[in-house]
Simulated scan of single mutants.
Amino acid sequence: MPPDRIAGTRPGDMFVHRNIASLVVQTEMSLLSVLQYAIDVLKVNQLIVCGH
């Protein structure tokens, strides 16, 4: 199910990063890059980190 449906937001209101198996690994460079971009460039003020 798409994250925007779960959160009740419109398409484009959420910035979503997905990877293989929905793993959250604190040393994964793609995850770290996405988090930095979301915070520094997009000025996201609320984050949801969800994974296995």
Rank of each mutant, 00 (worst) to 15 (best):
R5Y: 08
M29K: 14
A38G: 13
L35N: 03
I48K: 03
K43R: 13
P3T: 01
L32D: 02
V44A: 14
H52W: 00
M1R: 01
Y37F: 12
L31A: 02
P3R: 00
Y37W: 05
M14Y: 00
C50V: 01
G8M: 04
A38M: 13
A21K: 07
M29T: 14
A38K: 09
Q46Y: 12
N19A: 04
I48V: 11
E28N: 15
Q26Y: 15
F15S: 11
I48Y: 10
R18W: 04
T9R: 06
V24R: 02
D40V: 06
L32G: 04
I20G: 14
R5A: 09
A21I: 03
S30I: 03
Q46M: 10
M1C: 02
H52A: 02
L35D: 02
S33M: 10
L35G: 05
A38L: 09
G12K: 08
A21F: 11
V34A: 07
T27R: 14
S30Y: 03
E28K: 15
V16W: 00
S33I: 05
V49H: 01
E28G: 14
I20W: 15
P3M: 05
G12R: 08
I39P: 02
G51S: 12
Q26L: 15
E28F: 15
A38N: 08
Y37D: 12
G12M: 12
N45D: 11
M14R: 03
T27D: 14
G51T: 11
V24M: 10
P2I: 04
D40S: 09
P11E: 06
E28P: 11
L35K: 02
L32Y: 02
Y37P: 03
L32Q: 11
H52G: 01
I20Y: 15
T9D: 01
G51R: 10
G12Q: 11
M29F: 11
S30V: 04
I39T: 11
I6F: 13
N19S: 07
V25M: 05
V16Y: 00
H52T: 00
R18Q: 07
S33C: 08
I39D: 08
G8N: 07
I48P: 01
K43Q: 14
Q46A: 09
P2T: 03
D13L: 10
L31R: 04
V44L: 05
S33W: 07
D4K: 00
V34Y: 03
Q26T: 14
N45G: 06
Q26H: 15
A38S: 14
G8F: 04
F15I: 08
V25I: 10
V16A: 01
R18A: 06
L23R: 12
L47V: 15
T27F: 12
I20S: 15
V44D: 06
Q26I: 14
D40Q: 11
R5F: 09
R18I: 07
P3H: 01
A7C: 13
H17W: 05
M1T: 02
M14Q: 05
P3G: 00
M29W: 11
A7V: 06
V49G: 03
I6Q: 07
A21S: 09
L47F: 15
A38Y: 09
M29C: 13
I48W: 13
P2C: 03
L32W: 03
K43F: 10
Q46N: 10
G12L: 13
Q36E: 11
N45C: 04
C50D: 00
D4R: 01
Q26M: 15
G8Y: 06
N19H: 06
